[in-house]
Design a protein around this nucleic acid. Structure first.
Lengths: 329, 329
DNA sequence: TTGTAAGCGTTATCAT
DNA sequence: ATGATAACGCTTACAA
């Protein structure tokens, strides 16, 4: 391994000078600079990031902590974060928690021990409920899930409004017996439930039903199965995340129940399948690219200005009206 | 930051002893050990991984270099790699190259500078073509794309057989005018083309057509559009990756051409949409979980035995016969 | 069984 | 403008 010492020797200067050239920190004589650059090129020298990190007590890395990178929402976020980080010369450490608080804690610790400069974090339900006491000693941006903590920046969707809008869309299209299926793993499900109920209430209605279940395809499947096999069926199903939407869709297909003729289906998040199936699924599209980018930018702002007070950015969802919820009759 | 020195002081021992306790390296007196453990617990000490890495000249991190984590194939691989790494106490640095050799080189260098212990790598076309000369100074496992290099382990799919089987399936179901669409970004497309042509030849046939295009949805869309608007149409389209499959499917939908009545569609890789659409798409399922796991395991084996000669693991694809290619007529 | 001290590759402070 | 050197936190000969 060629180190700064070798370069110094080759250029006939001290390691300090090489370091200065590298960091572009004057004062430095142009001539010396040239000599050092030549040596660097000739030896094909590359600074050791680990040593630099040890010395600086931080590193050009950020941690990304999410439940599962296979969730299309997080995949998209992950990619956006990586892009934004890359532009600043940062790299991304990927951490999947599986909604498991222990894995989450382990990763948070690991990121700390790795001297990452910052963390972008979608916390589990358990974490959120105790987040008030938590001290983030590394700059952290929370995404997707509301948390009550003074220290962390946040990038969230306006879930209540989004759910309200999605529900109103169903109402406008003539649906009245609307069942709701909500994820029970985060505050997000609760907020979407809120918007759902508000919209119905404002139209003098109550939910046909409202259930909180684990955010998995099979939960959506069983819940929908129960709902649809009853004599008294809903005419629409509202789902609070794309896993549940998929489960409901599968149930409809399994039991040959036509969407939207027999019931309308709406949900959250853009997925490939949701666009490709017939009819395509009406959803609230979250601006994933923007969420990832904003989170990363917030992080970098915080890094350059550590004692700025935390801010929360709330983004709007975008209703994509599609075939799964066209006007009734 | 509480360091090993603080622990040593608190326990009334030297830093060396603390280090030994941490590493569980005898000889160490049980009593001393206890005292050290107590101090560690009391001070809530956590070893600094960066310092450890600098000293050891390696780190418990591996790099994952792929073209795009949003490609469902790589998403699945990424998750499998992360799982396998996690079990060994390793973490994963995520790198997206976008098939861009410069970004690829930059990341390879970065991983080097970060002292990662190993790399799991799906190289660009350009890289592969010069890979013979490349010296991997970090243990590297190549996945998905064949490369001619003596140093790297590899985990590949038997693409020729898989494509052969997929083509034979079409033939068995009565399709004769089969068009092929292949990705031009890697050796993978070439190999699948090979299997495609072989199968046809063995049945005394030639391709209706065979094109190499960039592996993007819109390339698949335009190629399919051209193919399907001609007077003389194929009765089946074979695609070599899921981006192209999606493009062809979209074209069929756009122009209201019925699958499989007017043409059959087959491809590679499991996607959510491919299962959900009607009819579902016949594909060769790659064992993504196994590929990721195997690659990671190969890496760890290599780490514990650095001068073992490189090995290549070839996995078989699994034909999932679905509605998009049912028997003709 | 334990302690001392060198060294991993940088950077920042203080001299010169 | 540049050089010498300490320090970041850890591990590992080597000594005791």
């Amino acid at each position: 391994m060629t180190s700064i010492k070798d370069v110094a020797k080759a250029a006939g200067v001290s390691t300090a000078t090489v370091s200065r050239v590298l960091a572009n920190k004057p004062p430095i004589r142009p001539e010396t600079r040239e000599r050092v650059m030549a040596a660097i090129a000739q030896l094909n020298y590359r600074p050791n990031l680990v040593a630099r990190s040890l010395r600086a007590q931080k590193s050009a890395k950020i941690g990304l902590v999410v439940s599962d990178i296979r969730n299309p929402f997080f995949t998209a976020i992950g990619r956006a974060v990586e892009d934004a980080a890359y532009e600043q010369g940062y790299s991304v450490l990927m951490c999947n928690t599986d909604e498991n608080p222990e894995k989450e804690m382990l990763y948070l610790n690991l990121l700390h021990d790795e001297n990452v400069s910052g963390i972008i974090f979608s916390p589990t339900h358990q974490f959120s409920s105790q987040a008030g006491d938590f001290h983030f000693d590394i700059p952290t941006v929370i995404i997707d899930r509301l948390v009550h903590n003074k220290e962390a920046d946040m990038v969230l969707l306006d879930n209540v409004s989004a759910a309200y809008e999605l529900t109103e869309h169903l109402l406008a299209n003539g649906y009245r017996k609307i069942a709701g299926l909500f994820g029970d793993a985060s505050a997000t499900g609760q907020e979407r439930h809120q918007g759902f109920v508000n919209a119905l209430r404002d139209h003098g209605l109550t939910p046909f039903s409202a259930e909180f279940v684990s955010p998995r395809i099979r939960s959506g499947f069983s819940a929908a199965t129960a709902l649809l096999q009853n004599a008294d069926q809903p005419d629409a199903i509202f789902t609070s995340n794309s896993m549940l939407t998929a489960g409901v869709f599968q149930a409809a297909r399994e039991f040959k129940i036509k969407i939207p003729d027999e019931f309308a289906l709406v949900g959250f998040d853009v997925t490939e399948w949701g666009e490709f199936v017939d009819p395509p699924i009406t959803v609230i599209a979250q601006p994933t690219e923007e969420i990832g980018r904003t989170a990363t930018e917030l992080l970098f702002q915080r890094l350059s200005n550590p004692n700025r007070s935390a801010r929360t950015v709330i983004l709007k969802g975008n209703l994509l009206k599609r075939g799964s919820s066209i006007a009734k009759r």
